[in-house]
C-alpha cells in the first residue's frame, strides 16, 4: 500500500474500533469476508452512530463474498454505489458520513442450487425455475460491474496428483506485483494508482487501440450484445493483460483474452 492508502484504511478501521491495541498504521491490505447472512447495514454501514460497514473496512483491500446468491437482494443491490463510486454515504438522524470504500470485489457462487448445472460428471437435479430464481438474485447491473468472470469445473481426484507442471503461486504473485509496479509508475502523475480506477477520459489516454484491435472489440460488442460499461471494463482488463506481459501497447490478443473473461453472463444470464 502507498502511504496515503495506509492512512485512509487505518482511519476507517480506527472508527470501527477494529485496530489492535497499540498498533500503528496498517501496512497490509485488508481482507474482509462477511457471512452471507449479513444485513445491508453491516455491509454498507449505519447504526445509531453511522459507523462504516464491511465495504469500507475493505477499503484499498479485498471484499470477498462467498455464495453470492445467498446474500439478500437488498445487500447485493446496495453494493452498486460503492462499486461504481468508491464511496458510500451513510445518513442517520444524528450523524451523516461519507466513507471511502474502494475495494476489490471477489465473489464465488455455484451455477445452480445443487451445484452440478453444466457439469460433465454429474447430472443437475434442479428445475429450470429453481436455476432461474437462483441466478436472478444477481441483477444485470451488478453482473455488469464484475470485470473477470471465470468458470471452474470440479477437478477429478486422480488429476490432482498427476497435474501438468503449472506456474507456481509464487511466480504468479511476482508477475502480479510487477504489473502493479508498472501501473503505479505509469500513473505516478495521476490521482489514481491502478487500471481498475481509470476514468473514461483516462481510458482514452492510456488504453488507446489500433484499428485492427478496435475492430475486433467492436465486432465482439456487437455479436455478444455487450453494454457500454462492459466495453470500458474490457478495455481496462485488456490493459491489465498487457501489463502482465509487460507490453506497452494493447494488442488484439490482449483484447481477445479480456473478452473471454466476460462470457459468463452470455451463457447463464441470457
Amino acid at each position: 500500500m502507498t502511504f496515503e492508502e495506509s492512512l485512509e484504511t487505518t482511519r476507517i478501521h480506527s472508527i470501527c474500533g477494529r485496530l489492535a491495541p497499540g498498533s500503528g498504521l496498517m501496512v497490509t491490505r485488508p481482507f474482509s469476508s462477511p457471512h452471507h447472512s449479513s444485513s445491508v447495514i453491516s455491509l454498507i454501514g449505519g447504526g445509531p452512530n453511522a459507523k462504516p460497514g464491511e465495504v469500507s473496512a475493505a477499503h484499498n483491500g479485498v471484499l470477498f463474498l462467498d455464495e453470492l446468491p445467498e446474500f439478500s437482494r437488498g445487500a447485493l443491490e446496495a453494493l452498486r454505489q460503492p462499486l461504481e463510486d468508491g464511496t458510500v454515504s451513510v445518513a442517520r438522524i444524528r450523524h451523516q458520513a461519507q466513507y471511502q470504500s474502494s475495494f476489490m470485489l471477489i465473489a464465488a457462487m455455484n451455477p445452480c442450487p445443487c451445484g452440478y448445472f453444466g457439469s460433465t460428471t454429474h447430472t443437475c437435479r434442479c428445475s429450470p425455475q429453481e436455476i432461474r430464481r437462483y441466478l436472478d438474485k444477481i441483477s444485470g447491473p451488478l453482473l455488469d460491474r464484475i470485470d473477470l468472470q471465470i468458470e471452474v469445473d470440479a477437478v477429478p481426484v486422480q488429476e490432482i496428483n498427476n497435474s501438468s507442471p503449472a506456474e507456481s503461486s509464487a511466480q504468479v504473485a511476482a508477475r502480479v506485483a510487477a504489473a502493479r509496479m508498472l501501473q503505479q509508475d505509469r500513473y505516478r502523475n495521476e490521482t489514481f494508482h491502478c487500471n481498475a480506477q481509470l476514468s473514461n477520459s483516462a481510458l482514452r489516454k492510456y488504453c488507446a487501440l489500433n484499428t485492427e484491435t478496435a475492430d475486433l472489440l467492436n465486432a465482439a460488442v456487437e455479436s455478444m450484445h455487450l453494454s457500454m460499461r462492459a466495453y470500458n471494463r474490457i478495455l481496462k482488463t485488456a490493459r491489465t493483460v498487457a501489463d502482465l506481459e509487460g507490453a506497452d501497447n494493447i494488442s488484439s490478443a490482449h483484447v481477445a483474452e479480456a473478452i473471454q473473461y466476460r462470457e459468463l453472463d452470455q451463457k447463464y444470464w441470457r
Binding site: P111, F117, G118, S119, T120, E151, D153, L216, A219, A220, S223, M224, S252, A253, H254, V255, A256, E257, I259, Q260, E263, Q266, K267, Y268
Partner: peptide, 17 residues
C-alpha cells in the same frame, strides 16, 4: 484469444462448464 475470435466469427459456441 483464439476462442474469442472463433466465437465472434460464430464458428464455435461456449457451453456451460
Amino acid at each position: 484469444s483464439t476462442l474469442t475470435v472463433l466465437q465472434i466469427r460464430k464458428m464455435i459456441d461456449p457451453l456451460p462448464g
